[in-house]
């Protein structure tokens, strides 16, 4: 057994935090991505403009810089809002965005932009005839989305989604720089204390590889599922 010199439990905690952070950010990113893709495809010029601005900014600025801006700026922005509430309506609340929430929001926000491109393409790839058929069956908008458009769209979105997930997972390592104790942060602290970089960094690297490898298997299974009813193509 490897001797982690007392850092074992903290490394495990860090791994758990990395995983939770990644999964929650993914959920937020998918939601934001669907929203931004919808906005881009909606007829509204304003929605289209806002969504385009959002994806352009995110794709032009490094994740780390965005993280610094959102992590500190986010709290200041929320405070300005609550201060206004206090002055205007005498409602005194303080919303504390803790580091973990800030991490989730930041990574979700960044990857929402990438997801929106994936979803936009996938929305467009669904044949309109399918939706017309759904309407002809008398399905409501939401039902038609859930039963018809979403499953059909997912088939096209999956490869991009999988790709984004892998990049997102690796991006979570950056939260160690802004002070969250994920597994990279614990490994870095341990490295500096013990001067054993390989002892701590390699298991953490293996942790990432384990998550990506399992994800790849899940993607394969999902792809098969959403491919049901379509002919095998090359």
């Amino acid at each position: 057994m490897i001797d982690f010199q007392g850092y074992g439990p903290r490394l495990l905690d860090g791994a758990l935090l990395t995983f939770e952070l990644a999964v929650l950010s993914l959920i937020l990113a998918v939601a934001l991505g669907l929203l931004a893709a919808s906005a881009k495809l909606s007829g509204s010029r304003l929605a289209h403009g806002v969504a385009t601005f959002y994806t352009t900014v995110v794709r032009g600025v490094p994740d780390l810089v965005l993280m610094m801006l959102l992590f500190y700026g986010g709290q200041i922005g929320v405070n300005m809002l609550t201060d206004q509430l206090y002055y205007a309506f005498d409602i005194d609340i303080f919303i504390n965005i803790n580091a973990f929430v800030a991490g989730v929001v930041t990574i979700g926000f960044i990857f929402g932009a990438y997801m929106s491109e994936t979803f936009r393409g996938a929305f467009l790839a669904v044949e309109e005839g399918q939706m017309e058929a759904a309407r002809a069956y008398g399905m409501s908008g939401w039902l038609a989305f859930r039963r018809i458009r979403f499953p059909l769209m997912m088939r096209h979105a999956l490869p991009g989604l999988g790709n984004n997930w892998m990049v997102l997972l690796k991006t979570t390592a950056l939260v160690s720089i802004i002070g969250l104790t994920d597994m990279v942060r614990v490994a870095a602290e341990a490295t500096k204390a013990t001067h054993e970089p390989f002892l701590f960094m390699i298991p953490v690297a293996l942790g990432y590889l384990a998550i990506t490898s399992v994800s790849e298997l899940v993607m394969l299974w999902l792809r098969k599922r959403y491919d049901t009813g379509f002919e095998e193509q090359d």
Binding site: A31, L35, L41, V78, I95, N96, I97, V101, V105, L124
Partner: peptide, 23 residues
């Protein structure tokens, strides 16, 4: 390809609820 405003709303709601800020 247009999406209904209701759909957009339906996508927005869980996002707001899921933001998870501690008040």
């Amino acid at each position: 390809n247009r999406l209904s405003p209701r759909l957009v709303g339906a996508l927005l709601l869980p996002m707001l609820l899921g933001a998870g800020v501690s008040v």
